[in-house]
Write a protein that binds this DNA or RNA. Structure first.
Length: 151
DNA sequence: GCCAACGTTGGC
DNA sequence: GCCAACGTTGGC
């Protein structure tokens, strides 16, 4: 089983939204490296839900991958803001996965705490201009973030 | 709202 | 294939 971290702006889609939905599609990813990570996900993998672009960016919860990569329907839908005319049913360019809400962290782990922790220095979130919206997390990093969350 | 760091686009 | 211009991300 692998571990991941996925970003979402809470004003667009928050951990609370996922909790209400139970299971939902993780779609709208329009970056090739992030897409390739989506395609590498397997059923049963776990992912952190990260709130970005908000007053306190933080890891806020945990989800489980329940459906492996399939063509992102929003890319094929002309009415969607994520529509990409270069993506066709024959040759879908973008992928989505389905995720299931697992839990909210007892204490969300703020970006500042992640940056301050030497054990998390290699996490892509705090490297390389941190633009990637889907990224792998090692087992050690996963455990460390859970520790910081008081879990 | 600002701006740095990226990724993408498109002219050549 | 280069690279400047442009758009986006996302912290602050």
């Amino acid at each position: 089983m692998a571990y991941w971290l996925m970003k979402s702006e809470p004003s667009v889609y928050s951990i609370e939204d996922l909790e209400r939905a139970g299971t939902d599609a993780w779609d709208g990813v329009r970056n090739y490296q992030a897409r390739n990570y989506l395609r590498a996900m397997r059923r049963g993998d776990r992912a952190f839900f990260y709130h970005s672009n908000c007053p306190e960016p933080a890891v806020t919860g945990i989800m489980e991958i329940v459906r492996e990569a399939y063509p992102d329907p929003t890319a094929l839908d002309p009415a969607s803001p994520y529509h990409d005319p270069r993506s066709t049913p024959d040759r879908p360019r973008w992928s989505a996965v389905d995720v299931r809400f697992v839990e909210r962290l007892p204490h969300p782990v703020p970006l500042a705490a992640i940056k301050a922790d030497p054990a998390l220095a290699e996490l892509p979130l705090v490297r390389r201009g941190n633009r990637l919206s889907v990224m792998p997390v090692t087992a050690a990093q996963w455990r460390r973030i859970l520790e910081l969350a008081g879990a």
